[in-house]
Design a protein around this nucleic acid. Structure first.
Lengths: 336, 336
DNA sequence: CTAATAAACTTAAACGATTAAGCGGAGGCG
DNA sequence: CGCCTCCGCTTAATCGTTTAAGTTTATTAG
């Protein structure tokens, strides 16, 4: 491969000069600079990221940690759209991304170790379980970190407003006349906590009483678990008229349960998802759901992280809240 | 960060000794080795990937190039499941993966340049358009390359058997009594070519005549385009009884078109997808589709690529065909 | 007893880039 | 004229690892 040395030789200058010319340093003559640039281009020169990283301690690589204990993680549209927006934001700033895993080859290593090994400049974390010991180790390290949908002290957090989203959904279905609402929520995380608060608050303000047996814990992104719970909800002596699901993906499982019970959506039962992933718009009926701005979630996390990496002193390490909006699909009907 | 030097100091040996001890070289005494290993562990030593890559010219990084001109690429379950299996196979061998893009920061660079910059040891390519100039540049370079669903000479190719898949699907619906079959296929790629061949051959062998107007070009992973084409197909004087779609994702668009035309699946029209992504199983009715082994597609591509990287002389650069199987969903009905 | 061999290290160069410090010459100033 | 400044470049060290070649000491063979 062609290196600085080759260019230096061809131009009759030192490698230092070439390096500075290419990096736009001021102490290089205009004539020399343009000659170097021309030759570099001619030879098809491309810097060596490893050498640069070794010397400067900046890899222009950001780590992405997606932990979803149940499934692959990437396989879900929510994660993959967030990932894609992280990727494209990072790319715009000259960064590549590296997936952080535990274990490299046969050796078991922690997330932090993996980050150190690759010398990533920072990490974006989206996880279901932020209490995981290895995740907290990472958050407590000196690496720049941005979390998605979870808050740590003195760390960048990008959040979607779960409380508001749930509040809006409850008000929406209530306005449609629903009072018998069941809620299947995800695992016990801060996301779930926010949604539960929003749900209960809205119900209370609207004077809606929800029996405990209608508040059920399911699993995020798991149509199967929601299928089972939905079947149970439909078997009770009194049936809810509307069911909330932890996300659009598992909502589909719920829809199937409803169909399999011989009922129709929304004629017999209304269904509400969460996330607003593309899938929610291509199914029929289109889901009534809270559309999270996954694009913003990912790109803001990346942008803020890069801001911290590049301007550590002036960067503000607080939370950013991303707006969402209600997607009024056809899965909720007006009753009475 | 703790480096070889620190360990060397603490152990009273040279860095060379430490390096060799950690890498399992034979010319290190047992006692010294275990002392070094212990100290390294105590100090939490982690090698520096950049330094190692710089010296050895091996980054333990493989590039992944997904080009989907229409959409994000990652956002589709087919790609994301393939990606995930590449990732986990690579991880098992001690490799990380890097997305290859054109452009880094403001600068426009080719895929190959990006690969050189990051010093990836090889690339897995999955693309809709393998005739893209930058893709061929990459394939013609000296970098180890494995392609998914496309064959280049003297290159590893991992393919799913599109001809066989299509053949099986045609025979399946024919056995159910369908003779009026419409086919919406994807862009003009080798995947499409294989499927068309399979389709025509099976039809011919079964003595089924398909009018040209029922063979339509759509767009992969684009429910919208399939929606439009489906509407057109339904408007004709004679309606097909079964429609084949380029993939499960866009099949959903077709289902909606059918519903919106006041028809039901499979009662009035049968529908066939392709891929067999998780989505195809959670919709209702479950799609009749050809289930590609995306898991195998990704992990074989990665495994074969790594084989070539690690044993360049003995590696066999040919094609591997991955089996699929028919998923008999409920979207095709028995007629007559 | 000497010489060859083996074992267990060390030395030192190299990978490709960056960057602080130095240096020669031109021009300006008093 | 002598001194200072500034420009434009070079020198040389350094980042953390690897590895070919060399060195020391002990062991074995002849």
């Amino acid at each position: 491969m062609v290196s600085l040395k080759d260019i230096a030789q061809r131009c009759g200058v030192s490698t230092a000069t070439v390096s500075k010319a290419l990096n736009g340093q001021p102490d290089i003559g205009e004539e020399t600079r343009s000659r170097i640039l021309r030759i570099a281009d001619e030879l098809g020169y491309m810097a060596n990221a490893s050498a640069r990283a070794l010397k400067t301690k900046r890899s222009y690589n950001i780590g992405v940690l997606f932990v979803d204990p149940m499934h692959g993680g990437l396989a879900h549209e929510f994660f993959s759209t967030v990932l894609d927006s992280i990727r494209s934001e990072a790319e715009g700033h000259g960064y590549d991304i590296t997936f952080i895993n535990q274990g490299l080859g046969q050796r078991e290593i922690s997330y932090l170790q993996h980050c150190r090994y690759r010398g990533v400049d920072g990490v974006v974390i989206a996880s279901v379980d932020f209490t995981d010991h290895m995740v907290t180790e990472l958050v407590q390290s000196d690496l720049p970190v941005a979390t998605i949908d979870h808050v740590f002290n003195d760390r960048i957090a990008v959040l979607s407003d779960n409380l508001k989203g749930m509040d809006a959904l409850v008000r929406f279905v209530a306005a449609k006349g629903h009072r018998k609402i069941a809620l299947i929520h995800g695992e016990d995380t801060s996301v779930t906590a926010g949604r539960l608060t929003g749900f209960h608050r809205a119900c209370e303000e609207l004077g809606i009483q929800i029996p405990d047996k209608w508040i059920r814990q399911g699993v995020f992104h798991d149509p199967k678990s929601c299928y089972a719970i939905t079947r149970e909800l439909l078997e009770g002596p009194e049936r809810p008229t509307c069911i909330f699901f932890p996300d659009d993906y598992s909502c589909i499982g719920g829809l199937n349960a409803i169909h399999d019970a011989g009922l129709r959506v929304p004629a017999d039962i209304s269904a509400v998802g969460y996330d607003g992933i593309p899938l929610s718009r291509i199914v029929s009926p289109v889901l009534t759901t809270w559309r999270q701005d996954t694009e913003a979630l990912g790109s803001l996390a990346a942008a803020r992280l890069i801001e911290q990496i590049e301007h550590p002193r002036t960067a503000i390490l607080d939370r950013v809240i991303v707006e969402g909006r209600l997607q009024e699909g056809g899965s909720v009907r007006q009753i009475c």
